[in-house]
Design a protein around this nucleic acid. Structure first.
Lengths: 171, 171
DNA sequence: TCTGAGTGATTGTGAAATGCAACCAGTTGC
DNA sequence: GCAACTGGTTGCATTTCACAATCACTCAGA
C-alpha cells in the first residue's frame, strides 16, 4: 500500500493515498461526525473497522500529512487526531461521492439526508463547511460568516440527521 | 469485493463500488483516453493493470451499470466498452481527485496539465465534457455548444497534453 | 489454405492486504 | 485498590492482488 508510484497521474496518485477501503471513511467520520479519538473512530464507525486496520490507516494518514496526531492535555494517554488543510480539502471529493452514491445506490434515508443537503448547498456550502473545519481542526480564527444560512453547516447537517431519525423512530 | 453492504452511507456505498485501486483508473482511461477495447485498456494503461484484474473489474463495472459491453460489428471477437450515464457522472469525482492530487502530490507535468485545465474550467467545463461523453458513449444527439470555448473539451485536453509532451521532448 | 498477428479473456501460483479476536501496558476516577 | 478506559499489538485465517503463461478463436494477407 505504501511506497508506490505507479504513475505521475494526479488521479492515480490520489488513489494511492486515499484509494483504499477505509481511509476516506475515517476522514468522513472526522469531518461529519467530529470523531477525534481512536476509540471514537473505532466504536462509532458505521461500518465496523477493526483496530489494527484503524491504527495502520491513522499512521499512514499522518505520514501523508492528511491528519495530525497530538496529545490530549486532559489525559496522558489520550490522543487527538485533527485534519490538516490537506485533509480538509478532501471534502469536495467526499461531497461528490456522496452525491453520486445518493443518486445511484440504495442509500438509507437517515444517512442520505446529509448528502442531500450538501448536494443542494453546492460548492458554496462546501467552502463554508471547510471554513468551519479550519476553525475546529486548525484553530484558525473564525471569519464572520455573512450571507450564509445562519447556523453553522455542521449543526445544520446534524440537526437534519436527527430530525430524520426522530421521525423514523417516533418512540 | 462484491455483495457487500457495510452500511447505507452514500460515501461508503460509492466506495464499495469504485473504491478499489483499479476501477476509477479504468473509468479515467475511458473518459480521458477514449479507450474502448480490452487490449487498449490493457496495453495503454499508464499503470500497467494485469489482464485478470482488468477482466474482473470490467465485469463488475458492467454488473453495476457503470459501463456497458457491446459487440463490435467490425470484428466478431471485438467488444466495445461504453460509459453509461452513471459512469459519465463519475467525472466530477475524478476531476476533484485530479485537482487535489495536483495540489498535494508529485504529479508529473505532462499528466498534470489535463488536471489543471479541468480545475481552471470548473464545473461548467465538466458539464460540457459530460455532454460530449454522452454523444460518444450514449449516442445522444449533440446539442449546439454555444458559449463554450470553441473546440470540444476532449480535443482541448488532448492538445494541451501533446503540447507539453512536444515541449519536453523537442526531438 | 496456411500463417502470424490480434481478439477478449482464463489459469496457476505466490505475495500482500484484510478481517477477526484476543490481548497489552499504562492511566484515570471512584 | 479496582474497574473502566486509553491507544494500540499480536497471531492467525481468509480474501484479494499481482505476475506470467496460456487459451480458443478470428481475421487479413500471401
Amino acid at each position: 500500500m505504501r511506497d508506490e508510484r505507479r504513475s505521475g497521474c494526479p488521479i492515480n496518485l490520489t488513489l494511492e493515498v486515499v484509494g483504499d477501503k477505509w481511509s476516506l471513511l475515517i476522514i468522513r467520520d472526522m469531518i461529519f461526525g467530529n470523531h477525534r479519538h481512536f476509540r471514537e473512530l473505532l466504536l462509532k464507525s458505521e461500518e465496523g473497522v477493526s483496530s489494527n486496520i484503524l491504527a495502520d490507516r491513522l499512521k499512514t494518514l499522518v505520514e501523508q500529512g492528511i491528519i495530525a496526531r497530538t496529545d490530549d492535555p486532559s489525559h496522558q494517554q489520550k490522543v487527538i487526531y485533527s485534519l490538516t488543510e490537506q485533509g480538509i480539502e478532501l471534502l469536495p471529493i467526499l461531497a461528490q461521492m456522496a452525491g453520486w452514491g445518493r443518486k445511484y445506490l440504495p442509500v438509507s434515508e437517515e444517512l442520505g439526508i446529509r448528502a442531500r443537503l450538501l448536494q443542494e448547498g453546492g460548492p458554496a456550502m462546501w467552502e463554508e463547511f471547510m471554513s468551519e473545519l479550519r476553525e475546529t481542526h486548525l484553530g484558525v480564527a473564525p471569519r464572520d460568516r455573512g450571507k450564509s444560512g445562519g447556523a453553522p453547516v455542521a449543526e445544520r447537517l446534524q440537526a437534519a440527521y436527527e430530525a430524520v431519525v426522530a421521525q423514523r423512530k417516533p418512540r
